[in-house]
Design a protein around this nucleic acid. Structure first.
Length: 422
RNA sequence: GGUGAGGUGGAUGAGCGGCUGAAAUCAGUAGUUUGCUAAACUGCCGUACGGGUUAAACUGUACCGCGGGUUCGAAUCCCGCCCUCACCGCCA
């Protein structure tokens, strides 16, 4: 959620920025400013009357103490009259405030200056690429066939137990998952991230604070009996560690990493987009999160991008880093870098990580602030990224490293896996 | 699932209709002092939205889990909800 003060400081510039994000109702900016002004005016009137009532009530107390019953009664009459004036003001204040928040919540975060213009994924900017795209033999097959051939993943079994999009990992397939998780967590903690193992379900308050509610309600599985949501990413529980807190500058940077399964309903997908591991309802992911001083967030963003890049290099996978264009970015993000790895058998790029700076958009709802050197509290900046999401990494590892005699794993995984390949 | 207790500022915890935005202690912070380590003493130390100021000072309102109610006046009384803890039952 944006701060009203940001809109007020430069409404026209905000509208321009919203346009870049492909937001269709820039007029809401003026509406919000109007509502805020109205709210202030109403509150000023309300406060004034309330102040008179408070003063009068104290007088009554003193008169009663002195035994001046008649005097007290006279003031009581006056207070009753004021209270009648107060009621409509209170109603319109609550109503205006509700409208203000309801409208403000519709505005996406503003894109950073370096975010490219554009509306579709085709307009994303390729920042750099790395690794070599392997040349596969004519008999190369996609990962879902390899998974079956070596009995690593059973998709049909998942259908039986739960439903489509819930793959069952078996034997070496399961161990590969565990190896990757272990490797990622080790790599992240070595870089100074503190490991968390968070709850995999969250309450509505937490889901709201990180922005999953109300925007993406349909995306999450909801256990209605207990009103809890299955997390779509570890970002939700882990970022909420710092909900309603005021940090000191010396607490920066807060660096957290967490493994979790992620649950996503992913309505509306179809065809080869969802084949095999390309898109599933439950998958494993290791997330990195930082909470930092606002002046440092872009520096930290670069650091996180390099960190994720190193992971891909260690895995020896061909990758590319995209800077998303305004129209393709997420609602809460000020800038996002997507990481894609090349799936050699499917001959397409698959997204495996997304690193974003939310600036103060998330911390505003999260109420995560810090007290600066000047003694003023202000909002922190939050950033997060996947490091990494497993399914598509597994897809590429299988496809790109397939040989006639089996699948060769990158060196970095061999120790974790307990073998050179499958 | 049953029974009981309770939710107060960063923490512990007092207050149980007006003198309480809230004692005290601890932590934090600024300073004084003693030769260091350390201790003692003194001041400061909640958040949000307003007014005010170059900036402060100062000042209005709200907030003692959340939402209602009673009252001239509520942290304090009443109702509903949420949550936590303890014991019992069940269970990994």
């Amino acid at each position: 959620m944006l701060q009203v003060s940001v809109l007020k400081a430069a409404p026209e510039r905000v509208k321009q920025q919203l346009k870049k994000k492909n937001f269709k109702q820039p007029e809401l900016v003026d509406r919000i400013i109007g509502l805020d002004d109205a709210r202030k005016k109403i509150q000023a009137g309300y406060d004034e009357i309330q102040s008179k009532i408070n003063t009068a009530s104290k007088e009554i107390g003193m008169m009663m103490g002195k035994g001046d019953k008649a005097g007290a009664e006279a003031i009581k009459m006056q207070v009753t009259a004021w209270k009648l004036e107060l009621e409509p003001l209170r109603e319109s204040m609550v109503e205006t405030e509700k409208q203000l928040v309801d409208t403000l919540i519709l505005l996406p975060n503003l894109p950073a200056d370096e975010v490219p213009e554009g509306k579709t994924p085709e307009e994303n900017e390729i920042v750099r690429t790395g690794g070599a795209i392997p040349v596969l033999g004519a008999d190369a097959v996609p990962h879902w066939e390899l998974a079956t051939r070596y009995n690593l993943i059973n998709f049909e079994l998942g259908n039986k137990i739960t439903g489509s999009g819930f793959p069952v990992y078996i034997g070496k397939g399961a161990k590969l998952q565990r190896s990757l998780i272990q490797f990622f967590l080790d790599f992240n903690t070595a870089a100074g991230y503190t490991e968390y193992l968070p709850p995999f379900m969250v309450n509505a308050e937490s889901a709201y604070a990180t922005g999953q509610l109300p925007d993406k309600e349909g995306q999450m599985y909801h256990a209605t009996e207990d009103n809890l949501y299955l997390i779509p990413t570890a970002e939700v529980p882990v970022t909420n560690v710092y909900r309603d807190t005021i940090l000191k500058e010396s607490d920066f940077p807060v660096k957290m990493t967490a493994y979790s399964p992620c649950f996503r309903r992913e309505a509306g997908s179809y065809g080869k987009e969802v084949r095999g591991l390309n898109r599933v309802h439950q998958f494993e992911k290791v997330e990195i999160i930082q909470i930092v001083h606002p002046e440092k967030s872009y520096e930290v963003l670069e650091e996180m991008v390099v960190h994720v890049e190193k992971l891909l290099q260690r895995l020896e996978l061909p990758y590319r880093i995209l800077r998303l264009c305004g129209g393709d970015m997420g609602f809460a993000s000020a800038i996002t870098y997507d990481f894609e790895v090349y799936s050699a058998a499917q001959q397409r790029w698959l997204e495996v990580s997304s690193v974003s700076n939310f600036e103060s958009f998330q911390s505003n709802r999260l109420k995560c602030r810090f007290k600066g050197a000047d003694g003023k509290t202000q909002l922190v900046h939050t950033l997060n990224g996947s490091a990494l999401a497993l399914p598509r990494i597994v897809a590429c590892l299988l496809e790109n490293n397939q040989t006639e005699s089996g699948i060769v794993l990158p060196k970095v995984l061999q120790g974790y896996f307990g073998g050179a390949g499958i």
